[in-house]
Nucleic acid binder design. Structure first.
Lengths: 150, 150
DNA sequence: TATTGTTATACTCTATAACTATA
DNA sequence: TATAGTTATAGAGTATAACAATA
C-alpha cells in the first residue's frame, strides 16, 4: 500500500505550485508587473515585435484582453504600440529598453533560483527528481488530453 | 556543469504548476466553483462551521473579499450563512449537504489523480521524486523566507 | 474602545458582442 | 467579405477605507 505516499507526493507538488505562484506574484509586483503582463512580455522577448493578434494566440486570451494588457504595459513603459508597416489595421507591439532589461533580469533570476534550488543536491537524487518530474508531466498531459476528449 | 539541467528541472516544475492550475480551474468550473471559493470550502471541510473572520485569516484575504466569496457560495448552494449563537456581530458559515458532497468528491478525485500519476512508477524512481520534491520545497521555503526578510 | 462584517470605491484579469477601419 | 483592434458591457477576485452593529 503506497497510496499514502502518492498523496504526499501530489500534495507536495500542489504546495510547490502555490509557493512558486505567490513568490512570483510578489516579486513581479515589486517591479510593476503582473503574471499576465509578464506572459506577454516573455512572448515578445522570444518572438520579437508582434501584432496583438499574434500575442492573443500565443498567450491564449481574447483580443480584448490583449488590448488591456498592452495598454497597461505601454502606460508603465515596458512596451510600445506602433503602427504596423504593411497592415494599417494592425499594431506592432515592441519591448522598450526598460522592457528588454526587465525580461533579461527575470531570465537571470530564474536561472539563479534554479541554481539555488538544486545546487548541492546529490547527483543521484537529482537524476531521480528530473526523471520523475518528466514522467509526471507526461502522465499529466495524457490524463488532461484524455479527460478533454472523454 | 549541470546548470542546464537545473534550468530544465525548474522549467518542468513551472510547467507542472501551469498544467495543474488550468486543469483544476476547468474541472471546478464544470461543477460551479472557482479556485478561490474552493479554498474557502476546504477550510470549512477541515475546520467545520467558521466565522468569516476565521475564514479570512485561514485563506489570507481581506474581510471584504470573504463577504463576496460567501455571498457567491450561498447563492450557488454550497454553504449557508447563519447567525452566530453567542456573538451577534458574527456569522457562522457552514457547508450544506451539497457542499459536503462536493468537497468529498474533490478529495476522492485528488486521491485518484495521485494514484494515476504515480501508480506504476518504479519504487526507486518514485523515492527519488518524493525525496527530491521535499528537498526542493524546503529550499524554496527557506529562500522565500530569506527574501522577505532581506 | 475594539471587533465583525457590511457598503463604497477602485484596480486587474477575463469573456462575448457590436462596431470601425482596413485588407 | 474577412480580419485587427477598439468600445461596450459584464463577472470574478482582490484591496483599502468608512461605517454599522455589537462586544
Amino acid at each position: 500500500m503506497y497510496d499514502d505516499r502518492y498523496d504526499v507526493a501530489l500534495d507536495q507538488i500542489l504546495e510547490l505550485t502555490v509557493l512558486l505562484n505567490e513568490d512570483m506574484t510578489g516579486a513581479l509586483a515589486d517591479i510593476g508587473l503582473t503574471t499576465s503582463r509578464v506572459r506577454l512580455v516573455w512572448v515578445l522577448h522570444r518572438a520579437g515585435p508582434s501584432t496583438q493578434k499574434t500575442l492573443a494566440e500565443a498567450i491564449d486570451v481574447s483580443a480584448r484582453n490583449v488590448t488591456g494588457l498592452v495598454d497597461a504595459l505601454v502606460e508603465t513603459g515596458f512596451v510600445t504600440r506602433e503602427p504596423h508597416p504593411h497592415d494599417r489595421r494592425a499594431s506592432l507591439v515592441t519591448l522598450t529598453e526598460r522592457g528588454t532589461v526587465t525580461v533579461n533580469d527575470l531570465e537571470r533570476q530564474q536561472h539563479e533560483l534554479a541554481h539555488q534550488l538544486f545546487a548541492d543536491m546529490s547527483t543521484r537524487r537529482y537524476d531521480g527528481l528530473v526523471k520523475g518530474m518528466a514522467d509526471v508531466l507526461d502522465r499529466l498531459r495524457t490524463l488532461i488530453t484524455a479527460s478533454k476528449e472523454g
